[in-house]
Structures are given as structure tokens and as C-alpha cells.
Design a protein around this nucleic acid. Structure first.
Lengths: 249, 249
DNA sequence: ACCTGAACACCGTTCAAGT
DNA sequence: ACCTGAACACCGTTCAAGT
């Protein structure tokens, strides 16, 4: 027993590979998923990063989906943590700030590893971090004035909107630069050169649209703003009394 | 000359393969992309569908991205056509109906071939059908009361929101059934069994959330409704006069 | 109990050879 | 001018063999 321990500690400087564990594999995978790590997640690259045979990962994860789901849990947990750090303790009454910070935090943690966004934005892990965060979001909307079920529907809208936009952005920015350039050219050139006679409004707004092409974050922030204006309207409606169930103005 | 024409028409019933053209390839590709066609687009399947060698397609499209972009143009054109058919002639003054129908139509044409949504929802082709539709959308918002640039920003928000949600839905529904079942279980089981003491609101709204999991269309319609409420607020603000540039309430 | 490495069925793409 | 078919560099995954 003692001899084996000693043997293990014997060559601390030699390049013996770290024992493969779920945690060490997830760490390596997160490194690969980040833009600095190349942003691509394959068994081959993962094996190289771990100094092990690519198929060794199968001893710790059933398949790639299993691995991706575990990465999603970590990503969601990080997003929730980011949001909590940016918010005052406990759910304040500023529901708008609360929802904005939560949405931006989730988006940021996914965009730090775009592959995860592409492969699993629409997946549900039902991890503790996730369920606690959902309960909190619903409570913020409920305390703002929405009935419970409507608050839950509203939470769902916000999260799906955020995840969908995040996946959309991640998918585009993961295309190779030459392909992205094709699209940028479509905006900058084709939309910029539309004849004023036939396209009077597009002619005037093309510069702004090209600007927006170059900054997805701006479009997301605008959508979030408009969406939350709609939520505000529903909250006002719910507070004004139980009557008047009409939808649109 | 005449002899060759006669020769070509000679065996109309024999199984001579149709000449490979850009159009015939696109038709075959659209067939494969539809759910009934299997929903997967690969050169191998495409070659089989065309009765030709898989690599023959490379004589008509530079690479897969070129093919996908052409399919995207057709999809957008179909969406625009769908919207026009559902709307009265010319842009009416009911901006809300206009935007709703346009968003639903684009969504429907992409979901008829989910692979295209997954691979190219975020791409810009700047095709004539696209540019004409954009000009119309901006004009509807402008006539509703928004300044041109704000109308353009609003168009962009609506389209990105719609395309992102469509890609999100398409990506999830293209997962194999076993994988989708994992997520459904997360909602129906884990969320349904949360202890009431710790999760009072989730406990009450879990049934509704599970319902929403099963119908993405419903979530999209709700998001669209909330978003358009926000747009209505901005239109009111713009109409009330040029003062009061504040964003949120 | 865990890891290795060959093997398999797929991808998109290239290129020399056919007609 | 267009199509064929072998070939290449990748994917995820399986499985018998090692230790």
C-alpha cells in the first residue's frame, strides 16, 4: 500500500498523464469550445487535449450527446452565477433590470463557447441551477403583477427568445470567414446599391442595416427592449384590474 | 441537326436520366429536405435521388454552401409569396396583421424544410424577392408612424427574432426521437416533481410549461404577440410627438 | 476497471479518367 | 462540356485486445 503510493508520487515531473475523470474531460472540452481553444469539439481534438486515445472518453460519457449535455449544465450554471453576481441580493422589485441581466448573462455564457450554443441551446437539463433560476424568474414576474401562469409563460418566452437568438448568433459566427464575408457583402454591397426610385426606404436605411449586421449584440439588445416593453404593457394590464382581457390595442 | 433532335426524342419511355441542371438539382434537394423526403441533405442522398454520381452536383454548384444558399433563396421567395397570398393587395394599414402574417409565413416555409433553417437561417442572399419584401415591411412600419430608421431597426428585429426562433425549433425537431424524449422527460418528470415547499410557483405552472414544450408554435406566437405589443408602444410614442426620447417606462 | 487501436459507416471535396 | 469513380481527410461509434 505505502509502496504504491510512493510509486505514484515518484515521478512528479515526468509527463505521466492526469487520470481521466468526468471533471478533467469536461475541463478539457470547455477549453476546446472556447474561441481561443479553436471552438470545435471532436473526439479527436479532445483526445489530443487529454493526451489520451480519442475513444477513451467513451468510458466516462455514453456518447457525444451525453458530453454536450454535461457541458450545457455547466454553461447554464455559469450564466445563472453571472446574473446573480450582477444583481443585488435577492429578487429586487426592478423586474426589468432583473430580466435584462439574466438574459444577457445566459447569452454571454453560451457565446463564450459557441459550439455548446449550437448543439444544445434548445435542450433542457433540469439541473438544480436551472430549476432554481426558473423559480426565481417566475417569482420576479409574479411579484411585478402577473398571475402565476402568465408569469410562467412570460419566463418561457424570455428564455426561448434569448436562447434562440444566442444559437442564431453562434451558428453564424462559427461559419468560416470566407462564408461570413459573402453575407457581409450582400448587406454592404447589394443593399447599399439598391436604386432609390424603387427602394426609397431601404436606400435610406441601408447604412444602419449594414451597421446592425456587424453587431449582433445590438440587435439582441433592441429585441429584448421591445419585448420587455410588451411585458410592461401586460403587467400594467394585469394591475389595472381583472377586466379587459383583450389582446391587442 | 434534325437527326440529332430525332435521336434525343427516340426513347421517351426508356429510363434515360433527366439532364442534370441547376433547377432539377434544386428540385431534388428540396424533396430531400422536406420531412417526407427524410429531412437530410447529403451529396450521397442527392446523387441517389438524381440517379447520378454524388459528385456530379459539383458541376453545377461550387460547394454545399452554394447549394444551400440557392435553397435559401427559394425558401425565402416561397415565404414572401405565402405572405402575399394571405394578405389583401398592397400594404394595408393594419401593420400588426401584416407583420404577423409575414413572420408566420417565413417561419412556415423554413419549417417545411428544416435543414435549410438549420444551415442558413442567419444567411442573407439579398435576392429580389428578399429586398422587395424588406422594402414593403419597412414601409408598413413607416406608414404606421415610425421614422424611417426606426422602422428599419424594427423590421430587423422582427426578422431576426423570427428566423432565430425558426432555427431553434428546426434544430430541436431534427434531433433523433430518443434524444428529444430525454428533454421531454426533463419537463414532464423533473419539473413536474419539484417539491412544492421549495418551488411553489414552478409547482403550479409545471403543467403549463410541459404543454408549451410540446407546442413550439404556441411559444413563438406568444413571443410575437408580446414583441408586437412593444412595437405598438413605440408607434404610439412616435405619434404622440417628437419629444420624450426616453426608452423605457 | 480503464485504455488502446483497428475497424466501420458515414461526411464533403478533389482530381484524374472517361465519354 | 459534363459525368464517373477512386481517393482523401475527416466525423462518431463499436469492439476485441491489451494492461
Amino acid at each position: 500500500m505505502e509502496a504504491r503510493v510512493a510509486e505514484q508520487a515518484e515521478r512528479p515531473t515526468s509527463k505521466r498523464r492526469a487520470a481521466l475523470t468526468r471533471e478533467s474531460i469536461l475541463e478539457a472540452a470547455l477549453r476546446l469550445c472556447s474561441p481561443e481553444g479553436g471552438g470545435q469539439l471532436t473526439f479527436s481534438r479532445l483526445g489530443k487535449e487529454l493526451g489520451a486515445d480519442p475513444t477513451a472518453v467513451y468510458r466516462h460519457f455514453r456518447d457525444k450527446d451525453d458530453l454536450v449535455l454535461a457541458l450545457t449544465e455547466l454553461t447554464v450554471a455559469e450564466g445563472v452565477e453571472l446574473a446573480r453576481a450582477a444583481l443585488p441580493d435577492g429578487p429586487s422589485d426592478d423586474w426589468r433590470a432583473w430580466l435584462t441581466v439574466t438574459a444577457e448573462s445566459i447569452r454571454a455564457s453560451y457565446l463564450a463557447r459557441p459550439v455548446v450554443a449550437i448543439l444544445a441551446a434548445a435542450r433542457t437539463t433540469a439541473s438544480p441551477a436551472e430549476t432554481r433560476s426558473v423559480e426565481l424568474l417566475i417569482s420576479v414576474l409574479h411579484r411585478a403583477g402577473l398571475p402565476v401562469i402568465e408569469a410562467a409563460e412570460c419566463y418561457r418566452q424570455l428564455v426561448d427568445l434569448t436562447l434562440a437568438m444566442t444559437q442564431y448568433t453562434a451558428a453564424f459566427s462559427s461559419l468560416d470567414p470566407a462564408t461570413q464575408a459573402k453575407d457581409e457583402a450582400a448587406w454592404a454591397v447589394k443593399y447599399g446599391m439598391l436604386p432609390e426610385a424603387e427602394f426609397p426606404l431601404l436606400h435610406r436605411s441601408a447604412p444602419r442595416l449594414t451597421e446592425l449586421f456587424r453587431d449582433d449584440g445590438e440587435v439582441f439588445r433592441m429585441i429584448l427592449g421591445t419585448f420587455l416593453d410588451g411585458v410592461a404593457l401586460r403587467i400594467d394590464r394585469a394591475r389595472d384590474g381583472s377586466a379587459g382581457a383583450g389582446r391587442s390595442a
